[in-house]
Design a protein around this nucleic acid. Structure first.
Length: 491
RNA sequence: GUCCCCGUCGUCUAGCCAGGUCCAGGACACCGGCCUUUCACGCCGGCAACACGGGUUCAAAUCCCGUCGGGGACGCCA
């Protein structure tokens, strides 16, 4: 039994698209599951877009996601001579022919067919040329393309797709397609097949948009005398209007980089993406890397296109709610040491990092991260919503002031009295601060919540947060007392 | 238009191949409750779908046909 070999062949566009990322993930999972190899091959024949930066964008995206490959990156342009050689071989074996029809002629025929509401297919004019006629045209300096000679026989080209089952297409419905341009450059259909044969690819896992290319590529495999790969086409990802998602119409939201820049955990994104069109068959949705590799199979891929549930301008969810939910899930369940390291990166970017968090204050740092993480959805939240825990300058939510401070003007004096009592406490612990706060509420004959919520607003700047007394302990006496005494600024 | 593919809750999906255990299960979102000093977390509960029409069958989400709907491909792009 031969080794499983799959490939991910992106064309460089400067960023990794989430659809492309999903394709890469499926290929990667399949390779890892079967102890095979993943080949990264850059289809860079479009010289315009193939800059070093755009290639790097793809590589960075894959690397960030944790998708590693075993071979490559290979570059399609490095093999152009092979592609042409394959075409010449087909020519020599009469499996292809030179076509001298001009673009204008073809365009006219195509339009005529369209006008007549008929199906357009190349009419094989040049296939019928005698060798002499063909040689004469070439000698006259007429430019030509090379077309593949689709076998003239009844029946269909059929293949057993691992996702869609048996798919067939009548020979009669396939036109003699161009494999080499008039300038001598080979076309994708040919190059792709030649590369897959050379790279000994055993399984081609790609988007459903490649489904109609498959019969033509199979013909090429046959003509080239190569052993056919197994195909598995995966459904596409559409937007809520059922349109294909693209950077052009959806912007950054479809780029993997966007998620990296908005506080996503790489694996959380991968976990979300894999669920878009695949399921394990049981009820699990959260998978560790190892669990996913074990659970993955081509059979679990769904046939229907899936919808990326993204609503532009949604105030609550800046991307698919499920993606956010999965990210938040990992945020609050992963080992605190691990998330502590990722949060550290965010704090450093915002200038909130204290080297002591890695030293004598590490215990405090990790406990604080653990204390606040269940309310956050992305890594960014630690430096924004959680800023008060790491800095003395932080914004205070206007609603919090309105709701917890302004409604009762006496709070102004009560909070500074509370600060005094805290300052006098022998031990500044959660139990002691709670006891003191509750005693004071009882003396004043007000609900404890009044003082607690007011204190939360002053100390953290926010209406919502962890248990107030845990917050106080985390903040430390000095900060708490100072912030409580500074309450006047809100009146 | 032609060819190919698809059609289960708002979204992701299980079930379909081997028809009954499905008046359809899970997750997200949403709503309600519990917990509680707030908001989350957690737990409990609720709302919500087999596109439509025929057929086969004792029985159909599951098999067959048709209709409608959606997507993809129809390039000297990849």
């Amino acid at each position: 039994m031969s080794e499983v070999r799959v490939r991910f062949p992106p064309s460089p566009t400067g960023y990794l698209h989430i659809g492309g990322a999903r394709t890469a993930i499926y290929n990667w999972l399949f390779a890892r599951k079967h102890g095979g190899k993943l080949v990264l091959r850059i289809e860079d024949t479009d010289a315009e877009r193939s800059t070093q930066e755009s290639i790097q964008g793809i590589i960075d995206g894959l690397t960030w996601l944790g998708i590693d490959w075993d071979e490559g990156p290979y570059f399609q342009t490095a093999h152009a001579a092979e592609h042409v050689a394959a075409a010449n071989r087909l020519l020599a074996e009469s499996k292809a022919y030179k076509c001298f029809c001009t673009k204008e002629e073809l365009e006219a025929k195509r339009e005529a067919a369209l006008a007549a509401k008929a199906d357009y297919k190349y009419d094989r004019t040049c296939r019928c040329l005698t060798p002499e006629e063909s040689a004469a045209k070439e000698a006259a300096g007429m430019p030509f393309v090379i077309r593949f000679k689709v076998p003239d026989r009844p029946g269909t080209v059929a293949f057993d797709d691992k996702v869609y089952g048996v798919v067939e297409r009548a020979y009669a419905d396939i036109e003699d397609f161009v494999i080499v341009r008039s300038n001598g450059a080979p076309l994708y259909l040919l190059s792709n097949v030649v590369d897959d044969i050379r790279d000994r690819i055993t399984h081609i896992i790609r988007g459903q948009d490649g489904l109609t290319n498959t019969p033509r590529q199979i013909l090429l495999y046959e003509a080239l005398g190569a052993q056919l790969a197994t195909y598995a086409h995966m459904p596409l990802t559409l937007d809520l209007n059922r349109a294909k998602i693209s950077k052009r119409s959806h912007g950054e939201i479809v780029a993997v980089q966007f998620y990296r820049d908005h506080g996503f955990l790489p694996w959380a994104l991968a976990n979300f993406l894999v669920l878009l069109g695949w399921s394990s068959g049981d009820d699990r949705e959260i998978f560790s890397r190892e669990e996913l590799i074990a659970a993955f199979s081509l059979e679990g891929i769904n046939r229907a296109n899936s919808v990326f549930n993204y609503r532009p301008g949604d105030p609550k969810f800046f991307t698919d709610p499920k993606a956010l939910n999965i990210n938040a899930h990992y945020l609050r369940t992963m080992p605190v040491e691990e998330i502590g390291g990722l949060v550290a990166e965010e704090l450093k970017k915002e200038g909130l990092w204290d080297p002591a968090y890695d030293g004598e204050r590490r215990g405090w740092y990790l406990a604080t991260v653990d204390l606040i993480r269940s309310r956050f959805h992305t890594l960014k939240d630690f430096a924004t919503l959680g800023r008060a825990y790491f800095a003395d300058e932080f914004e205070v939510e206007p609603q919090a002031v309105e709701k917890n401070l302004r409604k009762n003007a006496e709070l102004k004096t009560w909070l500074s009295q509370l600060a005094d009592r805290f300052a006098a406490l022998p031990a500044f612990t959660g139990e002691e601060t709670e006891r003191v706060a509750r005693e004071m509420a009882a003396e004043l004959n007000v609900k404890p919540g009044l003082l607690i919520n007011a204190a939360r607003t002053v100390v953290t700047g926010r209406v919502a947060g962890p248990s107030m007394f845990e917050v106080l302990a985390a903040m430390g006496r000095d900060r708490v007392v100072a912030r409580l005494r500074d309450v006047e600024k809100f009146y």
